[in-house]
Each structure stands twice: as structure tokens, then as C-alpha cells.
Design a protein around this nucleic acid. Sequence first.
DNA 1: GCGCGTTTGTTATAATATTACACCTCGCGC
DNA 2: GCGCGAGGTGTAATATTATAACAAACGCGC
Lengths: 160, 160
Amino acid sequence: MSNACAHHDHHHALAADTKSQRLAEAETLCAQAGERMTSSRLRTYELILEASGPIKAYDVIDRFHPQGAAKPPTVYRALSFLEQMGLIHRIESLNAFVACDTRDHPHAAGFLLCDCCGQSVEFAIPNVADIEVSATNSHFQIKHITLEARGLCGACRGHA
Amino acid sequence: MSNACAHHDHHHALAADTKSQRLAEAETLCAQAGERMTSSRLRTYELILEASGPIKAYDVIDRFHPQGAAKPPTVYRALSFLEQMGLIHRIESLNAFVACDTRDHPHAAGFLLCDCCGQSVEFAIPNVADIEVSATNSHFQIKHITLEARGLCGACRGHA
DNA sequence: GCGCGTTTGTTATAATATTACACCTCGCGC
DNA sequence: GCGCGAGGTGTAATATTATAACAAACGCGC
Ligand SMILES: [Zn+2]
Ligand SMILES: [Zn+2]
Ligand SMILES: [Zn+2]
Ligand SMILES: [Zn+2]
């Protein structure tokens, strides 16, 4: 987490077994979709899974190789692919990326984002129908909804 | 509008009299808040009002002076100020800024954004209470909600 | 006029993201 | 097996978005 909270530690990163399970699921998902889960894509996804919250593209770039950074297009291309597959979500208000929490890809999602420790929580957007009504009233056809709520998580609310 | 739609013209820019009214209202708002509406801030607000939709920071920078661009910090400072006063909203998914449509500042707002012509429509976020419930369930305290729905406006839906 | 906090000017640089083009790799038709 | 074409990758350069740091000027209360 780039915006680490100094007051305490959070341990939201995935356990190793969960991570390899997620990687395997991703391979299956791609195979079923007739897409190729290449090594760049898998490595990018792995780094996002390892992160304890939304991670910046350049943090992925820096960690990509043991011996040195990747070139930006390598990672940005992988990020686009993973986002299209629904395996990750882009957090617009942070310019960052987070692994999707669910097993149904792709889907719309809302996020709670802690301004102190950087942790994120994915949730189902409530009342999408009401947003659609606003859109219809303005003759809009919605393709994608971004919903991001910034604030403080329970742990961080304690220490101002 | 930077993402201009080639198929037709939109004319959403403010009429001159409306614009000067808005500028005057902004001066009043700042005076009442004990804040200074300086010339940089007013010029930045004017350019945002003149835009026919969300406008990028660097488009403001380029148009700032008749004879040449402003320096970035000048405009970014003004944008921060205007956003804090609630006179403009930042559109996260576009890295752009749009004048607030209402007369009560500041306030949360949702946006419908046309991917074709770039036009935006501001609307009241429906069922904020339901989002708050999701937050409470996760022990989050929300400070600010970003809601941006991307899609096609009525005019642009016609020409696929 | 003086002191003090705010605002601005200026330079430089950081952080985020894309374009362009050459090459490579894989699956498919033959 | 071979050639072809689509999709994927490597690489260099560049575009776009945003901030840091510090000095100078300004506005207000005294
Ligand atoms: Zn998800
Ligand atoms: Zn937190
Ligand atoms: Zn508004
Ligand atoms: Zn449109």
C-alpha cells in the first residue's frame, strides 16, 4: 500500500494458497474466454494480488522483475487486459488498481477507500436501477458506473 | 470539449449573460465565506464556465492568457480552491473539471458522461443512505462520494 | 509603515500514460 | 513442413497530468 498508515499494520494481503488459487482461476477464466493468460499478464495479476490494497501502475512496474523495473507498456497492456477480463478494477480517484474480490467477472463494483491506510473494500453498487432512472431522464445510456467512496476505515477512525 | 464528436455540434456553453451572472455569484459566495476571489481564480472559473463540458487542466492552462499559456501551479491552485468552494467538480474518470450546476455549494454530485461528445450532466446521487449502509457494514465513515456513469447521450446514441 | 499570513511567480521535477514501430509467436490453411 | 495473419511483446521516445520548493508580492489589521 503506497499510502501506508503509520499508526498500525494492516494485513490484508492474500495468503499464498489463496493467491495461487486465484491465479489458477484466472487461467481457467481466460481459457474459457479464448484469451491467452501470458506470463506478463499473470505476473501483473500476481503483483496486484500480493498488494494489500489498490496498487499504482508504477509500483507494479518497479516490482515486475527481481532485477529491475519493467517497461511501462508491458504493464499498462497487462492492466488493460486484466481489467477487460474483469479480474481487476481500476480505482479512478487513486489512479490505482485492485484485484476483483468476487468470482463473477466482469461486473460493476463500488469501493470504500480508506484515506489513512489505503485499504479498499469492494461492494455491490446499491440501487443501480435508480441511477439508470436518472440516466433515462437525461436520455443517457449507461455503459459503466464508477462509484468510489473515500473516508476512514474502522481501524483508522480510532486515531483521528 | 477535447473529445469532440465529429457527427454534430453541441451547444452547451453558457450564454454570456449567464456566465457573468455565475461569476458574480461566485464573487458573492467567496465574500460570504471570507475567501478571496482573485483574478487567477476568477479567470480559471471563467474558462471552465465557457467550456461546453468537462475541461482538462492543461486546456485551462493553454487558454489562460491571450498571448500564451499560464504556468501549471497557477491553474492547479485555482482549481483546488474552486473545488473546495464547491464551484467546480473534478471528474476523476476524465481527469477533468466541470462547473457545478447548482446554486448550493459545496455538495456531492453524480455525473453522466457521454463517451462520444464529452458532454456531462450533473445529477443528485440517489439513495446515498444505501451507500452509507454499505459503509457502516464495513465500519467505514464516508467523507466523499464519487459517482460517474459513462455512456452515450441521447444525441450520440443515434449515430452508433 | 510594519508584521504576518495568504497568494502568486518561477523553475524544476515527479508521476501517470501512450504512441510508434520492429520483431516475435502461435495457430491455421495448405 | 511452410507461409500467412492476428495477436502479443520489446524498446525507445514522448505525451499528459500534477506537485515540490522557495522567493517575491500582496492584503489586511494595527
Ligand atoms: Zn469486482
Ligand atoms: Zn484505514
Ligand atoms: Zn454540483
Ligand atoms: Zn454525446
